[in-house]
Write a protein that binds this DNA or RNA. Structure first.
Length: 360
DNA sequence: GCGGAGATGGACC
DNA sequence: CTAACGGGTCCATCTCCGC
């Protein structure tokens, strides 16, 4: 059976929800920000609506800079609980629309629809239209959808026309679709990889199909080199499936750069409490704890410790986090800008159902 | 040579 | 003001170490 995968991406999700909650915002530039503890407007842009994007505002940009570009924009702090609720509604609906479902972040998801549409692209397109309609009706939000032979292509297709787009890439169209694109359109090719490819004279995906696989492996390592080779050809057999979380973390910016334990501990304790709550909610125990420090120079350092068996004790988590923090401060004479704590080696606490146990 | 642990960096949302 | 910069997750790679 010819495989058909659908990828759905909500349009400027956070800003769109804010517009929906407050219709007066419609037509105005809206910038949703994650503000830090540094006061007066410091932080980064999470999402900007299209009015703000027209003025050059984009995600990841610093808020003061966005303010300079769009002084008349409405700046709002993120309201995660609100967005999560909306996301759950949408994902709950989507889950039932395919043969398999995979959420990839708060505002996007893959659906394996091969069986449901019997490998028929016309039916897949109809299904995509139906999904867009339902989400618009129920949530008052628009999304963009890509329909293609695999996840890699579906993801690129959903981003091809935005907002409110629908792009269908049938197998016969794959080469024509991919060849003219910049390599950075491939999911997994970011700034660094694109730059290294550019140095090799590879700008487009078409260029990449002509690259020598041996050279790619030499340059990028076995896994990534091989992946680049097949991705350029639109090949990908990654399954659509529910993935268990592998790690959970919390990180925050300190009011000022410091290496005094008493100025860091408070924040760390709060992060631990928050992380432990999330752990409990999701029924996870953990085996590895990491202390994360981002220095004044914005370099990230981590220190970790793995236990011989899993636990879900908050006191263990806090004890280890503090211990690792002290070890870090002893080792390095650096001021800390942001601190974080991470748990990995996750297991299921007794009596907890795995996400995988919930049927489709 | 293989694995787990630990550190780091790239990528994406 | 010639910059200033959140928070979260996943993955790959490298080194070290015990076996």
């Amino acid at each position: 059976m010819r495989r058909i995968v659908l990828h759905l991406d909500m349009d400027y999700f956070y800003a769109a929800i804010e517009e929906r909650e407050n219709p007066e915002l419609k037509g105005r530039p809206v910038v949703v920000c994650v503000y830090s503890a540094r006061g007066e407007g410091k932080g980064a842009v999470s999402t900007a609506n299209y009015e703000a994007r027209k003025r050059g505002v984009s995600s990841g940009m610093s808020c003061p800079r966005a303010k300079k570009l769009a002084p008349e924009a409405v700046f709002l702090p993120v309201n995660f609980e609100l967005y999560e609720g909306v996301s759950e509604n949408i994902m709950g609906y989507l889950r039932g629309q395919g043969n398999a479902f995979e959420q990839g972040g708060i505002d996007e998801a893959f659906l394996e629809v091969t069986g449901r549409v019997k490998s028929d692209y016309k039916k897949a397109e109809e299904l995509a239209r139906e999904i867009k309609k339902v989400i618009r009706l129920r949530e008052g939000l628009s999304c963009s959808i890509g329909v293609a032979p695999n996840k890699l292509l579906a993801k690129i297709a959903s981003g091809y026309r935005k907002p409110d787009g629908l792009t269908v890439v049938e197998p016969s169209m794959v080469q024509g679709f991919l060849r003219p694109m910049k390599t950075s359109k491939l999911w997994g090719v970011g700034k660094k990889t694109a730059e290294e490819l550019r140095e090799m004279g590879i700008i487009t995906v078409g260029d990449l199909t002509e690259a020598d696989p041996i050279t790619l492996v030499e340059k990028f390592g076995k896994a990534k080199g091989a992946w680049l080779y097949s991705a350029a050809r639109g090949l990908d057999d990654d399954k659509v499936e529910v993935r268990e979380a592998a790690q959970l973390s919390r990180i925050t910016t300190l009011p000022r750069n410091t290496r005094k334990p008493e100025e860091i501990e408070g924040a760390l304790k709060e992060l631990v409490r928050d992380l432990h709550t999330a752990l409990k909610e999701q029924g996870f125990s953990f085996r590895t704890v990491s202390f994360i420090a981002v220095t004044a120079a914005l370099k990230t350092h981590t220190k970790s410790r793995t236990l011989s068996s899993t636990t879900d004790e908050e006191t263990v988590l806090l004890g280890l986090a503090l211990e690792l923090m002290e070890a870090f401060l002893k080792e390095r004479d650096l001021d800390i800008r942001r601190v974080g704590v991470r748990v990995s080696g996750l297991g299921r606490a007794a009596g907890q159902k795995s996400l995988l146990d919930y049927g489709r």
